[in-house]
Amino acid sequence: MKIFFIICQTAILYGFFLLGEFIQGLLHISIPGSIIGMLILFSLLHVKWFRPRWIETGSHFLIKIMPLLFIPATVGAMDYLSLFRKYPSSLGIVFISTMIVIILSSAMSQRLNRNKLKKVVSEAEKEMSI
């Protein structure tokens, strides 16, 4: 029974993906169809008659197996192994730059959110003292 739900709900999610692709083609924007589809579904979830449980099981399933879905694309690296031998520095650059992004974005976010937490605490303290 669960498999039946997963298949139907995946089909629904696929429909949103196709809709997103269609809109992207229509408007010629560089935002990918999958993200447009996600934004449409996210907006629909706020509409009263649209039940979140219609896509709940399928969503959990797809998110859980997501690494598997990336494998065919990552295997594509095999066609470029000679290129990596020719330009090994390009791999190092991608690696260093990726680490810069992780460090900068997460450190910044930690700082911004810590300040907010402090603010909440200090406001609570103020209320307590009053």
């Binding site: 999610l13 949103f16 589809g37 996600m38 579904l41 959990h60 797809l62 879905l69 694309a73």
Partner: peptide
């Protein structure tokens, strides 16, 4: 397998 990546991205609307 790869064709399920699109709907998987759409699925993030739920969380």
């Amino acid at each position: 397998i790869g064709s399920l990546l699109g709907p998987a991205v759409v699925a993030f609307a739920y969380p």
